[in-house]
Design a protein around this nucleic acid. Structure first.
Lengths: 164, 164
DNA sequence: TCTATCGTTTAAAACGTTTTAAACGATTAT
DNA sequence: ATAATCGTTTAAAACGTTTTAAACGATAGA
């Protein structure tokens, strides 16, 4: 393999890792996807270990994470005992499915948060002085604005569903 | 202050922190915003320290981060030597501006990555064998697909600009 | 001028996460 | 049956990030 071509690959792998980290993902997750994507053919665990210079356990772990996203699947290669891994080549698909599930989780998280807050306040109504009731009312109004934001996120989710 | 009302607040603050962490942000950044947002009036550094139970240095650091986002600004309060902090009450505005700058950075990052890769391959052309040239060509084709993704991200950015 | 009160900086401690090396069970070949 | 080759698990080490406590400079008041 030409060394400059290899240099280009390594640069690419390195950059991919940095990009992933800036998104809050594990470096190797993105790098695994990148290596498999660029290689254009299924690779074994050992080959991935070689290319990325990480431990077998680490690669195994992150490959499984990618599998759980539907970004990678293992394929059977005739005559070999090893597992081989292949990427889902439609990057858009991978991205959007991850984005959708992430967004969905966040929206639910915010909902739960608001509901819990409301419940506590509601259950406390009886014990509140007039002044505290006024404060509680203010809180609820501010929460309503957050709920609007949440609805916006839901809409964004819908946009993602449609366009991506 | 009624203790249930306080419980509700603390729950809310706690949840906000968790939400932020799941987005990859510092817990206190979101909590500071939440406390200021819910309080409805400017608060001093000391008051924020009290409410969140963190060190003064930590709060100072994170408040400045929020300021740099335009999510919080310091206000002058007559008769006090302290700085007081006030939130930008338009959550949508805060979100979208952060989202826009983040997305913009990522898109640029991907562009740089691809350009660098292309440059190296280009500069290596002379040294490549026919076989390697074929590989290089394949690489470029795969990169093109990534560039399409990048363009999609740019479009998403445009959508954010318009709708949010 | 001297003291008290601010917010910031800094160096170190605390913490959680990532990564590894080695052990392991399962499977296949000899 | 035994040995070799897989991928996974696990407990500990390495690492980076977060958080703190204390020192600090700046500013205002006595």
């Amino acid at each position: 393999m030409n060394s400059k071509l290899e240099t280009a690959q390594n640069k690419f792998i390195e950059s991919t890792g940095k990009l992933a980290e800036s998104f809050g993902f594990n470096k190797f997750i993105a790098q695994l996807y990148a290596v498999l994507y660029m290689s254009g053919k299924p690779l074994s665990l050992d080959e991935l270990v070689d290319k990325l210079g990480a431990s077998k356990g680490n690669i195994s772990l992150n490959i499984r994470e990618l599998e759980s996203w539907g970004a990678v699947k293992s394929v059977w290669v005739k005559g070999s005992r090893k597992d081989y891994y292949e990427v889902e080549p439609d990057i858009k698909k991978v991205f959007s499915s991850k984005l959708k599930s992430s967004l969905g989780k966040r929206v639910a998280q915010v909902s739960d948060m608001i509901e819990e807050f409301k419940d506590i306040i509601e259950s406390a109504q009886g014990e509140l002085t007039e002044e505290e009731k006024a404060i509680a009312k203010e809180y609820k109004e501010r929460l309503k604005k957050i709920e609007n934001m949440k609805n916006l996120a839901s809409k964004a989710l819908a946009i993602v569903e449609k366009f991506f």
